[in-house]
């Protein structure tokens, strides 16, 4: 019987390849995706130390981020700007509000702009589905921290472990990996600082 951690590798591989392809297609340059599993602060430091040329843009962020234990996260960068993507991976019959709340909490505490709740081979509860359909503010969260506005965009997707593909639920503010790619492309091409 597989546990949720055993799916991390295939999910990471798929997301990374889609994001990189889409970024290359739209921006005609390379995107770098570095994965961390477990404690955010330490893992970020490790990634930056191992890849200083590409990840030094995240140094200040890594210094001020609080210690936080996560399933998986990705530091996504074009070398000049970066964004953080948090994945909350579940292997449950039906992902509900508690799993969504967990993702929201992680994104708020860490400052990550993007978060995906991923349920393996199953969808979301009727309650979560309904709320994500009708309550836009729970997937597009605007906050102000130290007078700086922050935006958190969250989505919910299903991982099909048989086909090794995502099945989109069209729920939340990140409805597909191509939409996430578009947002990242926009973040990295805009003049303002993309990351918090």
């Amino acid at each position: 019987m597989r546990n949720e951690k055993s799916y991390y590798t295939e999910i990471k591989k798929f997301i990374e390849s889609q994001l990189k392809s889409n970024f290359t297609a739209s921006n005609k340059r390379e995107l770098y995706v570095f994965w961390g599993i477990g404690e955010l602060k330490k893992e970020l430091q490790r990634i930056i130390n191992e890849n200083p040329a590409k990840c030094s843009c995240a140094t200040k962020f890594a210094e001020r981020v609080p210690p936080l234990s996560l399933d998986i996260f990705a530091l996504i960068t074009d070398g000049a700007k970066f964004e953080l993507l948090i994945l909350e991976v579940k292997l449950v019959r039906s992902a509900g509000l508690s799993e969504w709340s967990q993702l929201v909490g992680y994104c708020l505490v860490s400052g990550a702009k993007y978060g995906l709740l991923v349920n393996i081979d199953n969808g979301g509860s009727p309650r979560l589905t309904q709320m994500l359909h009708t309550e836009r503010h729970i997937s597009n969260i605007q906050t102000t921290v130290n007078d700086t506005p922050r935006e958190h965009l969250l989505g919910f997707m299903q991982w099909n472990s048989y086909t090794h593909n995502f099945e989109y639920s069209n729920l939340g503010s990140v409805k597909s990996l191509s939409e996430l790619s578009n947002k990242l492309a926009s973040d990295f091409s805009s003049k303002k600082l993309a990351n918090p």
Binding site: Q158, N165, E167, Y168, S169, N170, K175, S176, S178, E179
Partner: peptide, 11 residues
């Protein structure tokens, strides 16, 4: 309905 439909809707 699970693969094609949401993708068409989204794109």
């Amino acid at each position: 309905m699970n693969v094609v439909s949401p993708m068409f809707r989204n794109i």
